[in-house]
Amino acid sequence: MKNKKIIVALFFLPLLSCKRNLKTEGPNLEDLYGEFKILQPFQVSSGTVDFSTGESVHFTCKFNKPSDWTLTITGPNKAKKILTGKSNTLDLNNAVWNGTTTHFPTFSTGLCDAELFVKADSSYHKLKVQVNGKKKPGGQVVADFETGIQSGWKVFAQTGANMSFLIRDTGIIPEGGKYYDMGGAVNWDWLIGMIDFPASAYGTGGFKLGGNPDDLYFNVVINRPANLTNGIVLFQFREDENSDGLFNTNNEDMYSIELNNLKSGWQIYSIKYSELVCLVNGSPSTPKGNGRFDADKLFQISCLFLANPSSGYSKVGMDYIVFTQGKPLEL
């Protein structure tokens, strides 16, 4: 019986080592029902940041009860990053800035203003962040237009009125200093002009894509002028499935993405490679080839600029065509 008692006592030994956190659960109700207070002032994790090395900064602030807030960071080149939320804290979970932009151009280096607006007491809180290095967008670049039209690209423009298929250098655009200007009026055809990016223009291995098409994003940055809404940008993706160095329209896949109803100003458009569709005259259709998304066999990307012939002059700016892995492009 004595041995039994020892065994039973051994069973309860672990209880002696149990310690419990007796902290109150949930938000403090006295804070929640009291007057709104800022418990910790608006601060930044670091006064300087170099986004080019992958650094980021986060902002902190603590209120006694949840409130709507807006954090606006403005760069020396008028670039803006806006973060919003409703919470009682700003921290690593909801107020991180990794150098990306909400309103283009992208941030340049220099001193940025960070302003926090707290709706509960309509207060503004300001501080400065020194940016020493710009964010480097990753991915497999198809075109950034910084060094002109590359050999192998094929540009075609109709002989319409006010045609402008050319690279412009304004210095203030989402990425770099130059972009591609596509514009004109063609009253007999939807096609205004186009540009082909064949894989052969990128050397051995072509676009150097592969992997899971669910994790591969096609991205492009497009600017629609505020007063011109009729432009349509159509991208076509031709796959050389049998690797014979040619694209056969009868037995190989061509996928597309049609960007219409473009938003005003510079915007990033991203789509998973696996979400591209087969279009024939703008209507969904069945791919002619194996029906798989073989990004590693991408033969050519074509960008067609279209508009209704009766709609008159149309124009868009295009910049930074890039494939990214795992997530859409962030600039």
Partner: peptide
Amino acid sequence: EVVGQGVS
């Protein structure tokens, strides 16, 4: 309760 919720 073992610990309070919102208040002690």
